[in-house]
């Protein structure tokens, strides 16, 4: 036994040696840049670094200031609202579109291209386009008014209480196409026989979707969830292009706070503290999920 193990170990290490050597750069990148950069950021968030990093520890001061800042609190609230609705709507709309595409309709390719097309645009372009569409003087409001409904008012981007929904609309327009494609791929992966069996048993179509197809598409849903969630946390360019955080600070988001304080306010410590809080938020979501997902698989 021991002899075998001894003989086996070097083999394990040397197996696929080429591919291991080839992946060294990526491993180094991951460890040095991602992990190292993260630790460095967290470390310096306890200092009072201004324009340039310096080692002058101030304990939790930066965090106290952060949570006292009304702008940060508003940013977090906006992210929560945006995240909640963006997650639900992009999954629901994406899935419904995909299910409709899956009905063997004509011109499926054309429709798929149309729905996916917005995804080819950057958030900056999306933001500018929707800034125009939602502008009260040129966009939807003025078009409807010119049709005769003169009292019609739809002005989300200049109304602080609903501005975040104006951004949500743009994000959904841009992102649902991709969700639809992922879902469609998942639906195409379902064996035709399952549909036949369900039909033989007389199960209505909506129940087949809800109780059979969706549970079978779990991996696709998880992939989609991760893609949507990471998009939510890092939302920045869309806000900058559409409202630049306005009116006032009503549509601020955490990533913008980080950027503004690191570079405009020349206060690295404050920016690092904010980005550490963002990291913690992500960790709170990811860790339980990863535990369930990967911990479960080992047992199974």
């Amino acid at each position: 036994m021991t002899g075998q193990a001894n003989a086996g170990r070097p083999n394990q290490l040397l197996r696929n040696l080429n591919s291991k050597i080839a992946s060294i750069p990526m491993i180094l990148t991951a460890v040095v840049i991602f992990l190292g950069g993260t630790l460095w950021t967290v470390f310096y968030s306890f200092t009072n670094s201004k324009l340039l990093p310096r080692l002058n520890f101030v304990g939790l001061d930066q965090y106290e200031r952060l949570w006292d800042a009304p702008r940060w609190v508003i940013s977090i609230q906006n992210l929560a609202v945006y995240g909640f609705f963006s997650l639900i709507f992009s999954l629901v709309i994406g899935f419904v579109l995909a299910a409709m595409m899956d009905q063997k309709i004509r011109f499926e390719n054309a429709f798929r291209t149309i729905f996916l097309y917005p995804f080819a645009l950057s958030f900056i372009v999306t933001g500018l386009v929707w800034q125009w569409i939602l502008n009260p003087e040129f966009g939807v409001q003025s078009v409807v008014r010119s049709l005769g409904w003169t009292s019609f008012s739809f002005d989300p981007l200049y109304t602080p209480s609903i501005v975040i929904y104006g951004i949500l609309i743009a994000a959904l327009w841009q992102g649902t196409g991709l969700v639809m494609c992922l879902m469609l791929a998942g639906l195409r992966g379902i064996d035709e026989d399952i549909w036949k069996a369900a039909r033989v048993d007389g199960i209505p179509m909506w129940r087949t979707y809800v109780q059979i197809i969706i549970p079978m598409m779990r991996p696709v849903f998880i992939t989609t969830l991760v893609i949507i969630a990471s998009g939510i946390v890092r939302v920045y360019d869309l806000v900058v292009a559409q409202t630049s955080g306005g009116p006032g600070i009503a549509s601020e988001v955490p990533a913008k706070y980080v950027y503004d304080y690191m570079f405009q306010a020349q206060n690295l410590g404050q920016g690092f503290a904010a980005s550490t809080m963002m990291l913690i938020t992500v960790a709170i979501i990811i860790v339980p999920w990863a535990y369930l997902e990967f911990g479960g698989r080992k047992r199974g």
Partner: peptide
């Protein structure tokens, strides 16, 4: 700036 942009818009 944060304070006054909020003040003017709210």
């Amino acid at each position: 700036e944060d304070l006054f942009s909020e003040f003017f818009a709210s």
